[in-house]
């Protein structure tokens, strides 16, 4: 359902202002989305003055600095801190990205940090991705072969066929693309979204997989696939430089050309 404005309980209020105590002359104002499930208040934007003289180069370093030195209740997901796990995906300065690979020096002026768009917020910068994972499961992201049932030997793949997976196998499922997609915002319950469709294409395109026809048939749906209108927000936001829009178009093309 298309609903442009936020529901009443999601309207953002002005939050607290944390003044710098270090007396540094290199300060950055960081606006962070906060929501605490333990009280019934609306979400708010807290502003932190952060001393950039003693701060690492990435946006994630800022968040850690705030959590360690200013407000320990700040909640966000992170794990590897170098762009491999996809946990720290969030909306930084209006575009979804991994906060651990985004340099804060790229951003002039105040820094705005929100959770991934159009998700149910669990706490602060943590969004609920349950629907996306269910959709991921629905494309059966594993190798399906008949040969594999009979043999225990390795199923070989030529270098050319392996190269066809370049640009697709690198996806870490951080959900930056799916939550950047307006189509996914309005039809997230039915439309699979760029991340899951890219994964679907990765398996359709795998030379070892013997379930290609079934996979294509399953995804060929007015809502599951064709809600993609080439808005390209997915490709614009992908922190790994992949191209989900192209993957979706490739599926469409395969369906059209048979």
């Amino acid at each position: 359902m298309v609903q442009f404005s936020l529901p009443q309980n999601s309207k953002i209020l002005k939050g607290k202002y944390y003044k710098d105590k270090s007396g540094s002359n290199n300060l950055k104002k960081v606006n962070v989305y906060r929501w605490d499930p333990s009280n019934k208040e609306n979400p708010r934007i807290d502003t932190f003055e952060v001393n950039m003289k003693e701060c690492g180069p990435k946006v994630l370093d800022i968040l850690f600095k705030i959590k360690n030195e200013i407000d320990p209740s700040l909640t966000f997901r992170r794990s590897c801190a170098h762009g491999v796990c996809g946990s720290c995906a969030m909306n930084v300065d209006g575009v979804n990205t991994l906060s651990c690979t985004k340099s804060h020096s790229d951003i002039k002026g105040n820094l705005n940090i929100y959770p991934l768009p159009h998700l149910k917020v669990v706490k602060d910068l943590v969004g609920d991705l349950t629907t996306l994972y269910k959709q991921y499961e629905s494309v059966e992201p594993w190798l399906k072969t008949k040969v594999g049932e009979k043999t225990t030997k390795e199923i070989k793949q030529s270098q050319e066929d392996r190269a066809k997976l370049d640009g697709y196998y690198e996806c870490i499922l951080c959900a930056c693309c799916s939550t950047a997609c307006p189509s996914y915002w309005w039809n997230g319950d039915k439309y699979l979204g760029p991340a899951v469709l890219l994964q679907a294409y990765r398996w359709i395109n795998d030379s070892r997989d013997e379930d290609k026809k079934e996979r294509l048939k399953k995804v060929a749906d007015e809502l599951k696939l064709y809600r993609c209108h080439t808005i390209m927000n997915c490709t614009n936001s992908c922190p790994k430089g992949l191209n989900p829009a192209k993957a979706i178009a490739s599926i469409k093309k395969m369906l059209a050309t048979g």
Partner: peptide, 25 residues
């Protein structure tokens, strides 16, 4: 997880425009 009353994170309100999205709409 039951979270019907949890707020929805902001979307159109905060997402920055690109040429591609602007031309699409």
């Amino acid at each position: 997880m039951e979270n019907k009353n949890n707020p929805l994170s902001p979307h159109l309100q905060i997402y920055s425009w690109h040429i591609s999205s602007l031309l699409s709409i």
